Amino acid sequence: MKTAHPILIIEDDLDDCELIVQALADIGIQNERKCFEDGEKALRYLQTTSEKTFLILSDLSMPLLNGLELKKQINKDEKLRTQSIPFVFLTTSNSKKDILEAYNLLAQGFFTKPNDYRSLITLLRSVTHYWDIAQHPS
C-alpha cells in the first residue's frame, strides 16, 4: 500500500476482530492493525494520537459509543474531521435505517459482514485497494 498508516478496527466481538486482522494479513496488507472494542476507546485514541490513520473499519452495534455515535463525534471534532479518514461500516446490520443514517453521517461505505472467510477476503481486498488508490485531501 502507498500509505503505511494503521487501520483501525472497531469491533466489540474479539473473534470478529481477529478474523478481520487475519484476513488483512492474508491479502498482504502490511499496515499495522489496531483493534478497539468500543467507539469510546477508538475516539480517545484518535483525539490523542499524532499518528495518521489509513482507514477505519467500524462495527455498528457496540457498548459505550456505537459506530454511528463515533462517526458523529468524529464529524464534530475539527481536527479529526479535517483529516478525512475513510470511515467504513462493517457490520451484521443490513437495515435501511442504519444504512441511511450512516450515509447521512458521511460514512464512506457500509458493508454487511460476509458469512464466509473467502467473501470477507474479497470485501477487504476491494475496500483497502480502493482507499489505497483514491486521492486523499490529507
Score class of each variant (00 low, 15 high):
residue 1 M to V: 01
residue 2 K to I: 15
residue 2 K to G: 08
residue 5 H to Q: 07
residue 9 I to M: 02
residue 9 I to D: 04
residue 11 E to S: 09
residue 11 E to C: 04
residue 12 D to W: 08
residue 15 D to V: 11
residue 15 D to Q: 04
residue 18 E to I: 08
residue 19 L to G: 06
residue 20 I to H: 12
residue 20 I to V: 13
residue 22 Q to W: 07
residue 23 A to P: 09
residue 26 D to E: 15
residue 27 I to F: 00
residue 31 N to V: 13
residue 31 N to Y: 01
residue 33 R to D: 01
residue 33 R to V: 14
residue 34 K to T: 03
residue 36 F to T: 04
residue 36 F to H: 06
residue 37 E to R: 00
residue 38 D to H: 08
residue 41 K to Q: 05
residue 44 R to V: 13
residue 45 Y to K: 15
residue 46 L to G: 00
residue 46 L to V: 13
residue 48 T to K: 05
residue 52 K to C: 08
residue 56 I to T: 11
residue 59 D to E: 13
residue 60 L to Y: 09
residue 61 S to H: 15
residue 64 L to D: 12
residue 64 L to G: 04
residue 68 L to R: 12
residue 73 Q to K: 13
residue 73 Q to F: 02
residue 74 I to C: 06
residue 75 N to S: 10
residue 78 E to G: 03
residue 79 K to S: 06
residue 80 L to Q: 06
residue 82 T to C: 02
residue 85 I to R: 02
residue 85 I to K: 01
residue 87 F to H: 05
residue 87 F to P: 06
residue 87 F to M: 02
residue 90 L to C: 10
residue 91 T to N: 12
residue 91 T to Q: 11
residue 93 S to P: 07
residue 94 N to V: 08
residue 94 N to A: 12
residue 96 K to R: 14
residue 97 K to L: 05
residue 105 L to A: 01
residue 105 L to R: 05
residue 106 L to H: 06
residue 107 A to N: 00
residue 108 Q to E: 11
residue 109 G to L: 08
residue 109 G to E: 05
residue 111 F to V: 08
residue 113 K to P: 12
residue 115 N to Y: 09
residue 115 N to I: 09
residue 115 N to V: 02
residue 117 Y to G: 00
residue 118 R to H: 10
residue 120 L to R: 05
residue 122 T to M: 13
residue 125 R to L: 10
residue 126 S to N: 14
residue 128 T to M: 00
residue 129 H to D: 14
residue 129 H to T: 15
residue 129 H to M: 07
residue 136 H to A: 12
residue 138 S to Y: 13
